[in-house]
Computed example of a mutant assay.
Amino acid sequence: MIVFRQAKPMVTQKDIARRLGVSPGLVSRVLAGKGASIGAAAATVAAVRREALRLGYVPDCAARRLRGDRTATLGVVAYDFEDPYFGVLLGLLQRAARAAGHSLIVAGTWRRDPAGLDTAPLLKHGIEGLIIVGSDRGKPWLAPFRRACLPVVQIGHTTGRGVSCVAPDEQAGARLLLGHLRSRGHRRLAFLFNDTLPHALRRAHHRRALAALGLPPAPGCDLRCRFDRPESVETAADRLARMRDRPTALVAGDDATALLALRALRARGIRVPEDLHVVGCDDIPAAGLALPSLTTLRPPVEAMAHRAFLAASGCSPLAGESLFAPELVVRESSGG
């Protein structure tokens, strides 16, 4: 038997105003990025945006189009269509756009190849904002979007300037992950990272977390690989297998790297978790399906995608970097 339930009504600006005890007009101005122009206190602006995010507010774009000639179309640039973490984010952005009556136009590359990135169609379709999915060390392709004065938000980290970011709190994640391993009795840890920006940031925070926990870095245990060469994980596994004083845990820069490491370690007779604990980061769908299932950090991707959508659509402007604390997901690879 199929049971049809009434759809949950959409949250309106009046709902937010009623919960906060303020006027709907104030909420409307704040969500349109005009709070400062009407003299709203910074605390009030923050409270309105926080309540809108908590309630899952999305703008009534049909009404907005009636007030002007807006296209209700956002552009999305994904740095790697093969990355499963990016796939999750793209799906969540599509869900948010559909709920708000927006359309998305997506451009991107495979394996972060800048030569394959064609963003010209985004501007031709009159996008009203841009969301970048992925981290980078600069965006030479962004100049036309800056000239168009479009709101731009990035889900990820960047070393560039002038772009607001929504990203996981890597410092909090490092403390969670290493604190978990220390609680399991680990004192000698190996690290497996590539040369991408997220891995570099995570490795830096792991070093600080090690120092805070009073754990000295183990000599020879900083293993390297390349994101565009999966076979480089095999080389790292060879190094680890040959170590006389082998580490008791391996921290990988992301889940995809950790899953490659699980396979490489198994091929070399190293059992996980019996001989070595392995942890990752991102909680991609395959992490829970692996054998053994992977202990990892789960970023709040739904909240991150929703915040990025609100910023790019102009409903809730974002300045600087907004960090979201991850959750530790303990599975079989670190003892269950």
Rank of each mutant, 00 (worst) to 15 (best):
61 C>G: 15
188 R>C: 12
10 M>G: 12
209 A>T: 05
240 L>N: 10
121 P>S: 01
305 A>Y: 06
280 G>V: 09
259 L>M: 11
69 D>G: 09
120 A>D: 14
334 S>F: 02
247 P>V: 00
171 Q>W: 04
208 R>F: 00
66 L>H: 12
300 P>C: 09
128 E>F: 01
225 C>E: 13
90 L>D: 03
258 A>L: 03
1 M>F: 14
81 F>W: 13
192 L>N: 09
113 D>H: 04
127 I>Y: 04
62 A>F: 05
322 S>V: 03
170 E>D: 13
11 V>E: 01
35 G>I: 03
99 A>E: 15
317 P>G: 07
161 R>I: 04
328 L>W: 11
120 A>V: 14
252 A>V: 14
251 V>S: 05
21 G>W: 04
123 L>R: 08
31 L>R: 05
203 R>H: 13
215 L>F: 11
270 I>D: 01
262 L>P: 09
155 I>D: 06
254 D>F: 01
222 D>L: 05
246 R>P: 07
251 V>Q: 08
244 R>K: 14
294 L>H: 04
298 R>V: 00
104 L>S: 09
139 K>W: 05
76 V>N: 06
21 G>A: 03
290 A>G: 04
73 T>H: 10
333 S>K: 08
197 L>Y: 13
121 P>V: 06
295 T>W: 05
238 D>S: 00
66 L>D: 11
323 L>G: 03
334 S>M: 08
225 C>A: 13
245 D>Q: 13
318 L>F: 10
258 A>I: 09
53 L>V: 04
82 E>G: 14
205 H>F: 13
43 A>H: 14
74 L>I: 03
59 P>M: 02
319 A>Q: 14
169 D>E: 08
108 G>S: 04
205 H>N: 03
209 A>V: 02
329 V>I: 14
95 R>A: 15
64 R>K: 12
118 D>A: 12
140 P>T: 04
266 R>F: 10
75 G>W: 03
290 A>I: 02
156 G>Q: 08
125 H>G: 02
37 S>R: 15
213 L>M: 04
